[in-house]
């Protein structure tokens, strides 16, 4: 399953959200980004194929040290675990 893209006027940063389709905090993160017109990509890991999950595991663990959702990565360097409005605002300058 590829990443889904949500377009937005606020596209200065590369924003990637690792999420679960069942997780309310992941939904809130996506909604928060939409409400702020932020362009982002997301992937619902629970709906991915096994091979894809394994790849995501490597990616998430090496970047955040854990496997928690949502994990938002801004510009390939700022890692935000959980739905944290303040951290998201700060990283995105909104």
């Amino acid at each position: 399953m590829p990443f889904s893209k949500v377009s937005g006027r606020n596209n200065a940063h590369k924003v990637v959200v690792y999420a679960l389709s069942t997780c309310v905090w992941c939904k809130m993160t996506k909604q928060f980004l939409k409400d702020n017109n932020v362009e982002f990509e997301y992937i619902d890991v629970d709906l991915c194929e096994e091979k894809e999950k394994a790849r995501i595991r490597e990616e998430l663990q090496s970047r955040s040290g854990g496997l928690s959702y949502p994990t938002t990565i801004v510009d390939d360097k700022i890692v935000i675990v959980g739905f944290k409005k303040d951290k998201l605002k700060e990283a995105l300058g909104i």
Partner: peptide, 16 residues
Amino acid sequence: AYLATSELKAETVEMQ
């Protein structure tokens, strides 16, 4: 919950 074949690389464990 992830495929067992993807064993963690040593550097990943270090990073954690």
